[in-house]
Amino acid sequence: MAPSLALLRALCHAGQHPAGGRKPLRDLRRHTVGTTEGTATPEIGAQRAYEVNGCQAVEVGGYGFRRRGNDPLEVGDRVLLPENYVSRLKNGPGPTVGVVNKLGTTYRGPLSDIVGRAPATGGDD
């Protein structure tokens, strides 16, 4: 049975390893990422990268993307995402609109490029 997060935190702060003290766990506080509300969420073992190969990294809908360009994106910006198999089935051909929900990404694989900024909707969103 896997130990609970509370037990792992207690063992970590006591400097113990759940498997019998072979190696100390890394301090979970080093692996926290601030949210927009100013609270912290533990992401065990995940390091957030804000730049990948000189491009800004962001998350849109939980997926990592990179943005080439001089004008950095911010949380809440509307962007055009490249077409993929699922977006073509759901929305038809062409790019689809997404909203940046986090700056940086914890994903370490290849990232798709954001096509560009989405046009303004004309409303107050």
Rank of each mutant, 00 (worst) to 15 (best):
P42Y: 10
L5R: 09
P24S: 10
D113S: 08
D71E: 15
T121M: 06
E59F: 05
E43K: 13
M1R: 02
L28I: 14
Y63I: 15
N53A: 15
G21I: 04
G69M: 05
V86Y: 14
V60C: 02
N84M: 03
A10N: 07
G20I: 02
D27W: 06
D27Q: 03
P110Y: 10
G15Q: 02
T39K: 14
A46N: 12
V60Y: 00
H13V: 11
R78K: 12
G61M: 00
A120M: 07
G104W: 00
E51L: 12
K23W: 13
T106F: 08
G61T: 00
G20C: 03
G61N: 01
G64Y: 01
N84D: 09
Q16C: 06
D113C: 06
G15P: 02
P3S: 08
L7E: 11
L7Q: 09
T32I: 07
T121N: 05
A118T: 00
A6R: 12
R26H: 12
R68N: 13
V99R: 06
L80I: 07
P82H: 10
A57N: 02
S112I: 05
E51G: 03
V86E: 05
V99K: 03
G76P: 05
R78W: 11
G76D: 04
D71H: 15
G94L: 06
S4K: 02
T32Y: 09
G98W: 00
T105L: 04
R67W: 15
E83A: 07
P3I: 03
G92D: 04
H17Y: 09
V97E: 01
K90C: 10
T32L: 10
A40H: 11
D77A: 11
A49N: 12
R48E: 11
T39G: 12
G109M: 05
G21F: 08
P119W: 07
G109A: 03
P119M: 04
G38Q: 02
Q47S: 14
K102M: 10
V60K: 00
P18L: 02
T105D: 03
Y50Q: 13
V33Q: 12
T121P: 04
L7I: 09
Y63F: 15
F65E: 04
P42S: 10
V52F: 05
R108M: 08
K23Y: 13
G61E: 00
L5K: 13
G69C: 06
R88P: 02
G61L: 00
K102Y: 11
E74H: 15
G21C: 11
G34L: 15
L11E: 10
G98T: 01
A19G: 13
N70P: 14
A10I: 11
S112K: 09
P110V: 07
T32C: 12
Q16G: 06
P95E: 08
T105A: 01
G123S: 08
L28E: 13
G61F: 01
F65I: 03
L73D: 03
K102C: 08
F65W: 03
R67H: 15
G21A: 06
N70Y: 14
V79I: 02
H13G: 11
R78I: 10
A2V: 14
H17P: 06
R67F: 15
L25T: 01
P24C: 04
Q47M: 13
V79G: 03
G20T: 01
G104E: 01
E37Y: 13
G94W: 12
G104C: 02
L81W: 02
K90M: 14
G34N: 12
G62L: 04
E51H: 12
